[in-house]
């Protein structure tokens, strides 16, 4: 039957945007999250970052979330998990560009982003990471 293996729309949509580019600058990894940070993407990101940290011996990971308009408790947990896991590997994770409304919402919800470092923007995160070396 011709239709037997037709992929569903849902499956192809998920495959389509499952990966984010991880850019290396010296011994830092940079990920700019320019899309809706849905759950599967966030989990894949965690795995991909850990592999890259190990492969390149990265000292710092910078996640730019300036385009992310909603961060809920689950995404917070994933960001914390990324921070914790790379810390075990000897690297530091910086979240940069958290929007004011996102920050206020996290405070109101009472969830903590306590396993990652934060910086206002990319420049400041790079500055802080250089101080660490």
């Amino acid at each position: 039957m011709a239709h037997a293996h037709e992929p569903s729309d849902d499956a192809s949509n998920l495959r389509g945007d499952q990966e984010l580019a991880i850019i290396q600058i010296k011994n830092c990894l940079l990920v700019s999250i320019q899309t809706e940070l849905h759950d599967r993407l966030a989990l894949n990101l965690q795995a991909a970052i850990m592999e890259r940290v190990r492969a390149v011996g990265a000292k710092g990971i910078i996640l730019d979330v300036s385009a992310v308009e909603i961060i809920d408790s689950y995404i917070t947990r994933i960001l914390n998990d990324i921070g914790k896991s790379v810390r075990y590997m000897g690297a530091e994770c910086y979240i940069v560009g958290i929007r004011p409304a996102v920050a206020m919402t996290l405070i109101e919800m009472g969830v903590e982003l306590d396993s990652v470092n934060t910086a206002l923007n990319l420049d400041l995160a790079l500055e802080k990471l250089e101080l660490l070396q």
Partner: peptide
């Protein structure tokens, strides 16, 4: 799977 904080978070918001 989560932080167990979803409902609590909503209540606070």
């Amino acid at each position: 799977r989560g932080m167990g904080k979803g409902l609590m978070a909503v209540k606070k918001l």
